[in-house]
Design a protein around this nucleic acid. Structure first.
Lengths: 225, 225
DNA sequence: TATGGCTCTTAACAATTAGATAACAATTAC
DNA sequence: GTAATTGTTATCTAATTGTTAAGAGCCATA
């Protein structure tokens, strides 16, 4: 099954971890686990999960504390946090989930419920994140139609060209290293020589003109502001 | 705020009713309330809400029973039902929400969660209900008759072809990925190879001409504007 | 219950095009 | 001036899409 998202599950009970993990993997998620908040943080930092499923009650660093730290870290702007709340726990405590959790799921967990809920949350997320279009300078870079508009003019870019321009234009002025670009545009397991980027830059310049993309020698490329 | 939909809230606890009602009204919904299933039915019949928010546990006629009746009534084909489940309730019972509910929300209710969730559900609904016929370019794509009119000419498409064209034409210019298309035209549990789409596209082009549907390589198809 | 016609799906092969690379030219930094 | 870096072009190939045809299933009608 194809991969549809990364989920980090944090719970101190090994069998619950196992149970959830199994069900989410079956659904096609890439699942990571940690037994408490403290150990979860570095994993979260590393894998940048789309969603963190967090038990509220844990020994070393509890869910609420963990959630607060996550929400305070701009690395996790794009990360959803969902609490797992044992129903025996007092809800007044969970009310304290104004720590910033996005949702919560009550134990005991039914697999179908869990999966349905997480699917719904992540679907929402994907939708929200998919920045539909960027307007910079006289360009309107539109993901919906995969077209670049300049005034009345429509410019068609090839897919990689589009993604590359989109990336650069998403932070005008910021210099992206080739490494950077490869990671974002080509993805994790990159199998291409980084000079390939140069060729794509060339093609974009050919189609749009030289004034949009600048070269910072020894560093990378940027969208000129 | 403009009106974005009618919601009927059914719960036996007056303060919860009040709380939900307040938050939904603030969001722009037209809100109706009832204290139990029995009283809810005639109201539902009358106002034809877009969505019914239903407490599972209620004295006179509980949520599951109410839901069954609603789902059995063709008047409510277009009505979404969402359960409110108190945490103390046994989830095995909620499993019985195979009574046909479309979603459920756990108590205690967080306003943000409630509103976000309902918005999402209703957005989906509005989209589904949208326009029985579309006029784009020189085409009149008519759901009633499943025919395409081009001037005086009537063009007959097969069902899947029609649905596919209808989808693309519902957002002219927007590129739909194959995944996208499968989800919307074929439905959730898709059992077909995505190349099937290509063949349908071919047939549509054969019947209508090549000028309507464009290919965005590596991405998907779109209705050309 | 055959028969024929339709729709849908798939597989196989052809055509096309985006993308990758290498090779060489130009430019820049030191 | 030289080495390092980037620009540019041409070529090749791998991925994607187009196209055709064949078979399965369905339904209406004889």
């Amino acid at each position: 099954m194809e991969n549809i998202g990364k989920i980090l599950v944090v719970d101190d009970e090994a069998d619950i971890l196992e149970f959830i993990s199994y069900n989410l993997k079956k659904e096609g998620y890439e699942v990571y686990t940690a037994p408490n908040g403290k150990e979860a943080m570095p994993i979260a930092k590393k894998v940048k999960p789309d969603l963190i499923l967090l038990d509220v009650m844990m020994p070393v660093m509890d869910g609420i504390e963990t959630c607060k730290r996550i929400k305070a870290d701009s690395d996790f702007d794009q990360t959803y946090v969902v609490f797992l709340t044992a129903r025996s726990e007092d809800y007044s405590e969970i009310e304290g989930l104004d720590a910033g959790a996005d949702d919560y799921i009550a134990k005991p967990i039914k697999p179908k419920v869990l999966v349905t809920r997480l699917n719904a949350i992540l679907r929402r997320k994907i939708k929200e994140l998919a920045a539909p279009s960027i307007k910079v300078k006289d360009l309107h870079i539109d993901r919906e139609s995969f077209l670049i508009y300049r005034g009345e003019q429509k410019i068609q870019l090839a897919r990689k060209e589009f993604e590359l321009l989109f990336l650069l234009a998403s932070k005008p002025g910021k210099v992206f290293t080739r490494e950077n670009i490869l990671e974002k545009v080509w993805g994790d397991e990159v199998l291409v020589v980084d000079r390939t980027i140069d060729v794509h830059i060339r093609k974009i310049r050919e189609k749009l003109g030289d004034e949009y993309i600048g070269t910072v020698k020894g560093v990378g490329y940027k969208f000129e502001v």
